[in-house]
Design a protein around this nucleic acid. Structure first.
Lengths: 325, 325
DNA sequence: CTGTTAGCGCTTTCAT
DNA sequence: ATGAAAGCGCTAACAG
């Protein structure tokens, strides 16, 4: 049998309104509060959150939309978001969009029906129409023409940093290797500022930027690296690509990092606190998650927040670069 | 202004009961159903799911409890579970337990409060008391003395398979390298049946099994591999460990797979459909996710299901083994 | 087949 | 400071 407020009220000898007040920190005389709390404990009362949400239209739930799980950055990000939200007594709906615009829309739709209090999302589709519907929304790594609130790592600085770290380690001929999608995206700054920095420094470089989805990746890498044997410093769109490049180089008989040095992007690790898979420009994933949560909570609470938050990146050593000269 | 059933009923010229019936596929005359649907469309009616859950005590939500995100298997599993559940019109709460028993309990508690319809969990704590409270529960990779429903990959077969694949590739001296936790766990069968199979075949082998959390991993691996230079075939608890071992071997000047072959466990990939990080015993993650979902839905619907489901594993080639002799 | 109605458990006025 | 009472939007039982 389910214990409701009524039972608690009866046992404590008060009205249900009073029980509700102690639950919500309303003003209650200390002595009655004690009585009520005792009754709640005795009956092991658990408030029905659905009844409450039904009444208040607040669900204490936010939806987290993630494109794919095949990229560790997303899972890590999800982890931090959940962790932070849980601290704030929020639940999170996991929504995998599969990077598919329709599914994203569908999810946003669904999520609206379910009266979530807000959405944190790494999305690719154009969600303008929903933003306007004043549902709190925080976006990651993606900016829109509209005034969507978003947080991103400093991809531009990352691109520049990669150039400088490679050069500081004696690389003579650089290359950028990545994949891209049509949709605008903060991550495109990785390549863009890599190029800008190279040009600024009169550093010669090559570019291999492939439209996703990536087929025959190994072949295309082999071809590119064979065609440009002079390349000795490579910056990749992410760590996963760095690993691919490393594998191909090894197969071609080139040693990493002795012959060719590689810097990825993300700062992936196999285990928390463990060493990085490759030398990389690390994103502050945890900070990004925390920030996203802080922002969405602020928006939910009606505070206004700055639209754009850029978080710093850092070079991390992971074995695919040599020590600085 | 929010559109409720009342508005729809009025516009369609019917009672709210009828609207509810068309929504729930009750028996309604075709002509009235059409009228109601037209009205719903015209008003862009969205049923209030919270009101419904409040009334029916069914939330169409399940909680997914995951220990950590640092292991790709879990994120992948989460992905499949979510995907499958979404197909069945269920939402999923993401719950990170951090492998912490208190947090698990807390989450189960919370999740009960929120009236989820069931829990799918990779948990370590002893959740007996909650199972008995007849909340549908499906466990992964872990079995209890109680009759908890669980699904697992065939770890025993995996252990045996590793031995045979290594031997078929010419390895003379095998080793198992892994980490473990105190709690009983299906994954312990990987080591157990590795040993059993070696003994059955009179195959000589070494064991390095380390209590987690793993500190100084690289040092301990170096020590072990240096102490046993004759080892030429290694089976590891998972792919992540396989990568660690590979890295250490490379540093020691041993070539993989020419000098030493390695088989991991899990079948991790960087991207869907891409090649495996290491040669491995692949778990059927997708199938495991699907099965877990099927099971929980069956339990929710009051059907009875078998307690234990063991799913097949398979050897996959990932570059850390040579071709069969 | 369909309209009416009684709550589900909670929050929130409104009196007291 | 607190009790009483009015719903929130929906489903389900009951009449008709």
């Amino acid at each position: 049998m389910k214990i409701t407020m009524k039972e608690v009220a009866k046992l404590a000898g008060v009205g249900v309104g009073t029980v509700s007040r102690v639950l919500n920190n309303g003003s209650v005389k200390e002595s009655t509060r004690l009585k009520v709390e005792a009754a709640m404990k005795e009956l092991n009362y658990q408030p029905d959150l659905y009844a409450r949400s039904f009444k208040t239209n607040r669900t204490n739930t936010i939806a987290l939309i993630i494109p794919t799980v095949w990229h560790p950055f997303f899972s890590e990000f999800a982890w931090h978001v959940e962790h932070q939200l849980e601290k704030n007594n929020y639940k999170v709906y996991l929504c995998n969009s599969s990077g598919n615009a329709d599914k994203e829309q569908e999810y946003i739709q669904m999520v609206v029906q379910n009266k979530v209090d807000g959405i944190i999302g790494i999305t690719y589709s154009d969600i303008d129409q929903y933003i306007s519907s004043n549902l709190p929304f925080v976006s990651i790594d993606r900016y829109f023409t509209e005034d969507v609130i978003y947080v991103t790592a400093d991809n531009s600085a990352g691109g520049r940093l990669a150039v400088n770290e490679l050069r500081a380690r004696g690389c003579q001929k650089l290359a950028y290797i990545g994949g891209y999608q049509e949709t605008p995206n903060e991550t495109k700054n990785r390549r863009k500022y890599f190029e800008i920095e190279c040009q600024r420094l009169k550093q010669s470089y090559e570019i291999l930027d492939m439209l996703e989805p990536l087929t025959d990746l190994a072949d295309r890498l082999t071809e590119f690296l064979t065609a440009h044997p002079e390349i000795d410093g490579i910056f990749t769109i992410n760590d996963s690509m760095a690993l691919d490049v490393q594998r191909v180089l090894t197969k071609l008989g080139r040693r990493v990092p002795e012959d060719v040095q590689i810097i990825g992007f993300d700062g992936q690790r196999n285990r928390e606190g463990e060493k990085y898979l490759v030398s990389s420009i690390a994103q502050p994933v945890e900070l990004m998650g925390q920030t996203a949560v802080d922002l969405i909570l602020q928006v939910i609470n009606g505070q206004d927040v700055q639209q754009r938050t850029v978080l710093p990146v850092a070079f991390v050593e992971g074995g695919t670069t040599q020590s600085k000269e």
